[in-house]
Design a protein around this nucleic acid. Structure first.
Lengths: 126, 126
DNA sequence: TTATCATTTTCGTAATCGTCTAAATGATAA
DNA sequence: TTATCATTTAGACGATTACGAAAATGATAA
């Protein structure tokens, strides 16, 4: 009976063709659903050339805000803003030294993941 | 002389502290600069829970637009829009069968990369 | 204290994004 | 042909985003 009943989405009024498959997939997604927003958040963070450049610039050691801004060719304010974003999500840490603030990558695994995704693109080009 | 000359960014008027390091990093970035926009584009695409769900839903085989929309709980129109986006960037392919249109993942490597990044998050939680 | 300097924060703006509704395709069937 | 159905496209709307300009912190030095 449940297999023959035609269900409709609450949003659209189109019938569902493969109910069981859809139900199974929804159940599977439900397990990952908790982490998906976090994963999307990470991808959003990485989906910006400025922030990617920051991560690559800091890949080999810390830099002060001013130097990062020179690398980027952006305002100090804009640079600080992006650094804060990356820090607030736990991917950078900062260190105070007098008036200066130095930022560095907090989690090396992030750089590895980045490299992996970079390879995905290169592979596709070939 | 080049090491002692103080340069200023054309954008902001702040002095640059580690000129040589900054110059070296800029040179390094220049090599990757061509692919960075594409990488950011990919990340932007993945930085959305709806599209992540689509990829995971299609991970085990093709689905018609209607069924995908049921999985997502979204309008057919919204679903079609996101499917088109993923297809236009080469990550999905479609197949016509009468009135129906079936979508599937075009590049398995994308799913692997996705899984890798997923692990990065899980690792961080531990 | 006051002045200076690196950085952060606030605010405004233009652009992009994700979704909806409604109209338009495009294919099948009567 | 006309009717129906799955999908796509167009247009509109609210939400988010990235940046610059300018004001506000916070630390150092005179």
């Amino acid at each position: 009976m449940p297999a023959t009943k035609i269900i409709s989405s609450p949003v659209c009024h189109v019938t569902c063709f493969e109910q069981e498959k859809v139900a199974r997939i929804k159940a599977e997604l439900a397990k990952e659903e908790q982490l998906l927003p976090q994963l999307a958040e990470l991808y959003k963070l990485l989906g910006n050339v400025t922030r990617l450049k920051i991560l690559l610039a800091l890949a080999h050691g810390e830099l002060c805000v001013c130097d990062v801004s020179h690398v980027l060719g952006l305002t100090i304010a804009a640079t600080s803003h992006q650094l804060k974003l990356l820090r607030s999500q736990g991917w950078l840490t900062m260190r105070n030294d007098g008036k200066m603030v130095y930022y560095r990558v907090h989690n090396e695994s992030l750089l590895k993941a980045l490299k992996g995704d970079f390879c995905l693109l290169e592979e596709r080009l070939a």
